[in-house]
Nucleic acid binder design. Structure first.
Length: 381
RNA sequence: CCGGAGUUGGCCGAGCGGUCAAUGGCACCAGACUGUAAAUCUGUCGGGCUUCGCCCUACCCAAGUUCGAAUCUUGGACUCCGGA
């Protein structure tokens, strides 16, 4: 039996939403939670103190990127990623499976694993389930993920099934290798399984069952929102699996999504989220902003309409910078490509996302999530 | 006053007889971004329309040469660089 790491504290009476706590070696994570992405061992443009102040409880790192740079040797010498980056709270690492998908032009799959050409210098590297586990053990992530094969949304069913079976085989190899490493090093970290199945609901069901057989302490649902599929498709892909996966284990949805998606997915039983959207969009000058009780809008700060808008970036922020610097000033920083722009916008967007999951959690606790879910929407500014 | 160089779309700047409503860059406008090869990318960018095409007005101004001129000639205006 896998170790129990999740405790449910409250359930929504009208949806599958639940609030809980995930217990990890570097601390507890209150769910639902959004996990900022720190691919290369840093949430782009932010320091540890800023992440703390944002209330980040857990962040992501990336096996593929950290493997290539700084390299395992450095991470090993540093004593793991927590020490290397001075982040004492939990870390979840992606296994490299997604890079096998997104770096399509420079990789090749086989049953044994994935061969990559490094995007940095072209050098060939081979990533197998065993190698991914070794890397994630050196990184020391609280939650490691099995190596999976992720495919574009428009894939054929035959192909989707083939990849799903391979992911299942890799999951087993990942689990065995991870257990062996745990035995050797004595670490207390966790390995999550990845149900796949593309857009085919029956494959989603089959994949969830196959993954459950391997008895992971939690799940990271994969292959959702990989290629512009309509919202309803995404939502049903997830629901097919959360209906089956054990309630008492935490469910992470890989790579999703918009604020609206997050609310919808919580209603379908997801506990943990990660997405590049708040951080990447921030660097592109797109700011998330709460509007009223149930709305949010997307501000394109670079447009001329903000040239003389001297209102604060966010008067409700916990950050002095966001309460005091004006939109006009932030626009100026973007137009001038001043580095402060990226930091301010990233703080703004992550604060928005983390406040969103905090509010969702509170509403689940006092059972007012349902009305929030029903009314939540994007409002064009 | 003499000699030389120049004046192109919001700005900078290519083009130097037809294939030019005019390459590029910037700005502007619009869009994209969902397990980060992204401080990125895409589209638009003189005006109008029956908008995978057509019609106007355009490369300082004027008059020419030519079947045809942003591109050649002459005159004018302005700018810059040398020399008095």
């Amino acid at each position: 039996m896998s170790k129990k790491i999740f405790e449910i504290q409250a359930k929504c009476s009208k949806s599958k939403a639940r609030a809980g706590v995930v217990k990890l070696p570097h601390g507890e994570v209150k769910t639902p939670i959004f996990m900022p992405i720190g691919t290369q061992g840093t949430v782009k443009s932010l320091s540890r103190d800023e992440l703390e102040k944002l209330g980040s409880q857990i962040i992501l790192g990336n096996t593929y990127h950290l493997w290539l740079r700084p390299d395992l040797d450095v991470l090993q010498s540093a004593g793991g990623l927590h020490k290397f980056s001075s982040w004492e709270k939990p870390i979840l690492t992606d296994s490299g499976g997604f890079q096998a998908f997104s770096l399509a032009k420079i990789r090749k799959f086989s049953e044994e694993g994935v061969t990559f050409s490094s995007h940095l210098n072209g050098e060939k590297r081979f990533l197998s389930p065993e190698e991914s586990m070794r890397i994630q053990t050196v990184i020391g992530s609280d939650i490691a993920l099995v190596l999976d094969e992720c495919l574009p949304a428009e894939i054929s069913k035959v192909e989707a099934r083939r990849a799903m079976i391979r992911t299942r085989n890799w999951a087993e190899r990942s689990r065995d290798a991870f257990e062996k490493l745990r035995h050797e090093t004595g670490h207390e970290n966790n390995l999550f399984g990845i149900p796949q199945g593309a857009q085919f609901n029956d494959l989603r069901v089959e994949s969830a069952k196959l993954t459950m057989e391997l008895d992971f302490p939690g799940y990271s649902i994969g292959g959702v929102a990989n290629g512009g599929e309509p919202e309803e498709v995404m939502y049903s892909q997830v629901l097919e699996q959360t209906e089956i996966l054990e309630d008492e284990k935490p469910r992470h949805l890989l790579g999703v999504g918009t604020p609206k998606d997050i609310v919808e997915m919580v209603a379908r039983g997801i506990d943990m989220f990660d997405c590049v959207m708040p951080t990447r969009n921030a660097r592109h000058g797109s700011l998330f902003s709460k509007v009223g009780e149930y709305g949010y809008s997307n501000i394109k700060i670079k447009t001329k309409r903000y040239e003389k808008d001297f209102s604060p970036i966010n008067s409700d922020s916990v950050f002095w910078e966001l309460r005091n610097y004006s939109k006009a000033y932030l626009r100026h920083l973007f137009i001038s490509k001043e580095l402060l722009a990226y930091r301010l916008a990233t703080l703004n967007n992550l604060e928005f996302y983390l406040n969103l999951t905090t509010e969702i959690r509170e509403r689940i606790m006092n059972d007012t999530f349902d009305e929030f879910w029903k009314n939540y929407k994007q409002i064009d500014s």
